[in-house]
Design a protein around this nucleic acid. Structure first.
Length: 155
DNA sequence: GCCAACGTTGGC
DNA sequence: GCCAACGTTGGC
């Protein structure tokens, strides 16, 4: 079992949106970066742990826990001319972009980016490294555990 | 709105 | 295959 941090803009899909969806599950559409796509395609497995992260917003940080709920399959938005994620270069027979489904486990308190940066036990997390822009990053087991402890401790 | 960082594109 | 230009991300 692996662990991941997945960024979502709450204007698009927030933790509360996810909680309100049928099955509390959403297709993780819109990834347009090969490295992030490859994580979904090659490494994610059903049941992998996900830190649901709010980015590009007033209070960036971890907002809940989720899990990988499907294998990777073609991202429908790449073929939708009305979508901002439309990719006219992608071919129906050989889709360029994939997504997995992500299912809510539970909403948590917000573990803010600021607090994450203050915690020495999280200092090596990939998402905190300088210049990191990947929307999906692997999370080491010890970081996963440290985040859970922070979420359960000081709630 | 600014800007550092980094991925992608495209000319050569 | 190099690399400059450009576009995007995302915190501030």
């Amino acid at each position: 079992m692996r662990f991941w941090l997945m960024k979502s803009e709450p204007d698009e899909v927030s933790i509360d949106h996810l909680a309100a969806l049928p099955q509390q599950t959403v297709a993780w559409f819109g990834v347009r970066n090969y490295q992030a796509r490859n994580f979904m395609r090659d490494q994610m497995q059903l049941g992998d742990g996900v830190l649901f992260y709010h980015s590009s917003c007033a209070e960036p940080g971890i907002a809940g826990l989720a899990e990988v709920a499907s294998a990777a399959y073609p991202d429908a938005t790449q073929f939708d001319p009305a979508s901002p994620y439309h990719d006219p270069q992608s071919d129906l027979q050989h889709p360029r972009w994939l997504n997995v489904d992500v299912k809510l486990v539970r909403k948590t308190r917000l573990l803010s980016l600021q607090e994450m940066r203050e915690r020495p036990e999280l200092a090596d997390m990939r998402v905190l490294q300088r210049g990191n822009r990947l929307s999906i990053t692997p999370v080491d087991p010890q970081h996963w555990q440290a985040v859970l402890t922070l979420l359960e401790g000081a709630a």
